[in-house]
Computed example of a mutant assay.
Amino acid sequence: MRPIGRHTAVGAVIALLVTGAAGCAQARPAASGRAPATAELSDAALDLAVRAGPYREEQLSLQQAEYELTRRCMDERGFDYPTWEGGTTGIDDSWQPDLENRRSHGYGFAGPAASPENQYPSGLSATERKAYARALSGDPGKQAVLRLSSGPEFTFGTTGCIAESRIGLYGDAVDAARVFYVPQEARNALNGPIGSSPAMRAATRAWKSCMKDRGQPYGSMAEARADAHRAHEAADADTARRTEVRIAMADGACALAADMPEVADRVGREQAGGLTSRQRTDLNRAAELRAAALERAQDIAGDRP
């Protein structure tokens, strides 16, 4: 991980911003049965559920805006913070692969190891590090909880610069978590119907044929990922990484060749009516909040020096 001057590496901070949005998950049994279809999904909510069109570009815009607000907040508190150097969102679905991300990181099995030394600007004393962490993450005793209709709940901070950046972008810390998690809940619910559909089964057969032609005759995407993961147990780090990237790139290229993104989009939209009424209502709300946040993100981008 390359340091940025005296500051924390941008990649590590982005990871904190993305995963911290949301905090800790406490899994509960998923709700069973389906409610009557009473909430019709908006077009924006459907787009969000299937991650359609410019989804990744929009996510990058939101991440960049959140990052910029966090940087300004830390600056006001007297702390240096790294500047944004671009990158990808790190969103890489099996059916909607991000080849740019895979070319650099494979499936992401061998991410950079976290180090206490790269979490702070250099030269801070122990007392100053405490103050820096407090400014960034806030009071650990001040948290909120978001409970999804399918069971899981997430806790996250409501103070500190990370939380303040989300409040500035989404209007409320809970709404920020809602925009992050509700679409995931919907997509997770749709994955089963998408994967078992005749269209995706046909696309999977095309994927397997493509992989065989590339000299990687895996029976499924799960097998390909498992083999890439095993490489890290059987080879040195550089060899394992090259193996992982090679498999991940072939996997992604064959997914695109088999039209899996189009199939996932089309079938996901067809099956979205099977989401529970509460899930559809929550997804509509998340789409509205996200659209407003994207407008704010444009304003923030225009204000950057």
Rank of each mutant, 00 (worst) to 15 (best):
residue 52 A to P: 06
residue 52 A to W: 12
residue 52 A to T: 06
residue 53 G to I: 07
residue 53 G to A: 09
residue 53 G to E: 12
residue 53 G to P: 04
residue 53 G to C: 06
residue 54 P to N: 10
residue 54 P to H: 12
residue 55 Y to V: 00
residue 55 Y to L: 00
residue 55 Y to M: 01
residue 55 Y to S: 04
residue 56 R to E: 07
residue 56 R to P: 04
residue 57 E to L: 02
residue 58 E to Y: 04
residue 58 E to P: 07
residue 58 E to I: 02
residue 59 Q to H: 14
residue 59 Q to M: 11
residue 59 Q to A: 08
residue 59 Q to F: 06
residue 60 L to K: 13
residue 61 S to E: 15
residue 62 L to A: 07
residue 62 L to N: 06
residue 62 L to F: 13
residue 62 L to E: 07
residue 63 Q to G: 05
residue 63 Q to M: 11
residue 64 Q to W: 15
residue 64 Q to Y: 14
residue 64 Q to S: 15
residue 64 Q to F: 14
residue 65 A to L: 03
residue 65 A to Y: 01
residue 65 A to I: 05
residue 65 A to D: 02
residue 66 E to L: 12
residue 66 E to P: 05
residue 66 E to Y: 15
residue 66 E to M: 15
residue 67 Y to F: 13
residue 67 Y to N: 01
residue 67 Y to W: 07
residue 68 E to V: 06
residue 68 E to C: 07
residue 68 E to A: 09
residue 68 E to W: 15
residue 68 E to N: 08
residue 69 L to G: 00
residue 69 L to Q: 00
residue 69 L to M: 02
residue 69 L to Y: 00
residue 69 L to T: 00
residue 69 L to V: 00
residue 70 T to F: 09
residue 70 T to N: 09
residue 70 T to H: 12
residue 70 T to M: 15
residue 71 R to D: 00
residue 71 R to E: 00
residue 71 R to N: 01
residue 72 R to C: 03
residue 72 R to E: 03
residue 72 R to N: 04
residue 72 R to Q: 08
residue 72 R to K: 06
residue 73 C to Q: 07
residue 73 C to Y: 02
residue 73 C to N: 08
residue 73 C to K: 08
residue 74 M to Y: 03
residue 74 M to P: 05
residue 75 D to P: 08
residue 75 D to C: 13
residue 75 D to W: 10
residue 75 D to S: 15
residue 75 D to V: 14
residue 76 E to G: 10
residue 76 E to A: 10
residue 76 E to F: 11
residue 77 R to Q: 07
residue 77 R to G: 01
residue 77 R to C: 02
residue 77 R to H: 10
residue 77 R to W: 08
residue 78 G to N: 06
residue 78 G to W: 07
residue 78 G to H: 09
residue 79 F to S: 01
residue 79 F to D: 02
residue 79 F to K: 03
residue 80 D to Y: 01
residue 81 Y to M: 09
residue 81 Y to F: 13
residue 81 Y to N: 09
residue 81 Y to P: 05
residue 82 P to C: 13
residue 82 P to E: 14
residue 82 P to N: 12
residue 82 P to V: 12
residue 82 P to D: 13
residue 83 T to Y: 14
residue 83 T to H: 11
residue 83 T to C: 08
